[in-house]
Design a protein around this nucleic acid. Structure first.
Lengths: 359, 359
DNA sequence: CTGAAAGCGCTTACAG
DNA sequence: CTGAAAGCGCTTACAG
């Protein structure tokens, strides 16, 4: 079942078949009808490979993320797939584990697939990692990572604002000694959040900050993170003087792991220590201590990324655009001390999200 | 950069280039070296589309699931992608939302992509849905759904065993009035679990079962499930006589939604009612009432599926094989009454998983 | 508006 | 072991 068969059945040339099915060029109504009738009768299936080979561009979008198993990432992947499918595009999902070698392999794979565009959460801030994509003229949108490249669009969370929300809450509850639980400090979110924490805490007399992260660099996957992070972090913070009383975690999985470790060691939350994170998760409100967190606007992140990508696909010369999304603070109970709690600050409340465009 | 350029640079024919790069056929060492040298010098990138067109088969695997946003599904997707990537295959992820129309669209898409194989969790038990794949000779492995087709391999959870584990626990805690919270009753897991519940409860004098599900058929996505399911279920069970005291949920998201609704209405777990589910989730042990559940061996499900698929790709004529995986019971606290609890049955414990092959 | 023809970049019988 | 050549199924200048 190919164009040749349809052309024969409809008594037209394959060029006409192509014009009808692709909706390009002008075809007389009579011939159009003949072609469509032939297609119906023959249960024709187009060959995407042939189309791709000829047009040198596949109707496929590539998505390179750290790991779809993280709830935040899964949610992005779902939204991107929806948007792609709505436009007849397939979605190739690649999990880099934030590993440069894997990322490189996937970038090569996607280039060989001649994907129409790539949405990537790069493992590094070094724009060099994306050069092969640029050389292959593949439109790129980056997620969650600041990359200084002229040829990509970027969707970013306002990490400074997110950090301030979380810290303001913790400071109001009387905390002065903090621990930042981060995966890799190389990635944008960690870097920006640490910077923000440092500059916020500089203004607070006597405030301290322990960074628990470096040891965790090799931790890969949800399961391993769950098992490893909590104990490793506690080993570190327990040795610190003064010991931190407030933990700020990079994501929901790390927070869960830490909470388990604290529970195992009999440390009470929020009576002994506070624990908050940059990431919401179903179930956080049902925890023994409901978790205060900042939620990422996942749906908007994904929608925006797809929107930027398709506009760049349509017009490859576009200048780089950056979208900064503001997160939302969800105040539950894990943020506050048992004593000295500012009850007003603890009432369940949310602030309205804002979106901001930078250029 | 194509075979023609390499051939010219290496002074050989394109056929020889193909033989060297694909590793097929015999090539003299001298020519092989010339080709490899030329490839190095030219930063060559193969065209997957050309290869696919010529071989009529893409190095791509298709995965059709309900929704990657569900933790269980994300975990499967991750494992499948890993296995595919290890063999140089790309992974196209498709979310059907258990919707027949969407599923059909994706099946067509994957056939047009000429994927080498498909792993699918079908939206229906009707083997007719998979016919296009069979007609296109695409190897298929089904997940989680019993499909009576001769040409697919199937990976299934032992739903009867899983149900018995959960029920035994609840019965030991004195429960007699049950509610089954299911999404669609058309799918295999729900159907088999309901059957198992019914036949188990037949032996228990005075036992009752309410099925809360039919209204939930249109609920799509994690967010909507979270918002809708709990209240809808309670509206139903509150009207039942006798009111159920034990809820068995189909998955972790539904359980979370139900727990939130119960909390909102001031119903205590496990003092007033017990709530358990077929699915584990990070954080369940940290809930105010830690959740008793049956965990699915996701990693093994995915590994097995990929294994079956690749063996079928290598040998398409293989007879249908079915793998039945046994789940694991994780006893925490949501299973038991405040009064009349059999403490022994409540101690945190797990049974060893088993795997069983059927043919 | 229409068709003949070239060509996208590979692979694979076929002949030697 | 090697190469010339055909062909996978489309799209698209080009000429009319």
């Amino acid at each position: 079942m190919t164009y040749k068969d349809i052309a024969r059945a409809a008594q037209v040339s394959t060029a006409t078949v192509s014009r009808v099915l692709a909706g390009t060029g002008q075809v007389s109504e009579e011939r159009r009808d003949r072609v469509l009738a032939a297609v119906d009768g023959l249960s024709y299936r187009p060959s995407r490979a042939a189309r791709t080979l000829r047009r040198q561009r596949a109707d496929t979008i590539g998505l390179i993320v750290s790991d779809v198993e993280y709830p935040f990432v899964a949610s992005i992947a779902r939204a991107v797939e929806n948007a792609a499918a709505a436009r007849g595009f397939a979605l190739a999902v690649c999990n880099s584990d934030e590993n440069l070698g894997r990322e490189r392999t996937y970038i090569d794979l996607l280039i060989e697939e001649q994907v129409a565009g790539v949405i990537i959460s790069p493992a590094t801030e070094d724009p060099g990692a994306l050069r092969p994509l640029r050389d292959a003229r593949v439109p790129v949108v980056t997620l969650d990572r600041r990359i200084d490249a002229q040829y990509t669009d970027n969707v970013l969370l306002d990490n400074a604002a997110a950090t301030q929300m979380l810290l303001a809450d913790l400071l109001a509850h009387g905390h002065r000694h903090f621990a930042a639980v981060v995966g890799t400090t190389a990635a944008t979110p960690s870097r920006e959040r640490l910077e923000a924490m440092r500059s916020e805490l500089e203004r607070v007399p006597g405030a301290t900050l322990v960074v628990a992260g470096s040891r965790l660099g090799d931790t890969v996957g949800v399961r391993q993170t769950l098992e490893t992070v909590g104990p490793a972090v506690l080993a570190l913070t327990r040795a610190a003087h003064p010991e931190p009383t407030a933990y700020v975690c990079a994501n929901a999985v790390m927070l869960t792991s830490l909470l388990e470790a604290l529970h195992d060691q009999g440390v009470a939350v929020p009576d002994d220590v506070a624990v908050v994170c940059f990431d919401d998760m179903p179930g956080f409100s049902l925890f023994a201590t409901p978790v205060t967190c900042v939620t990422q606007p996942t749906r908007r992140i994904a929608t925006k990324a797809v929107e930027l990508l398709f506009s760049r696909m349509a017009e490859p010369g576009l200048p780089s655009r950056t979208t900064l999304l503001t997160p939302e603070l969800v105040t539950r109970r894990s943020c506050g001390h048992g004593s000295g709690i500012d009850r007003a600050a603890c009432a369940s409340s949310t602030n309205e999200p804002q979106e901001q465009e930078l250029t």
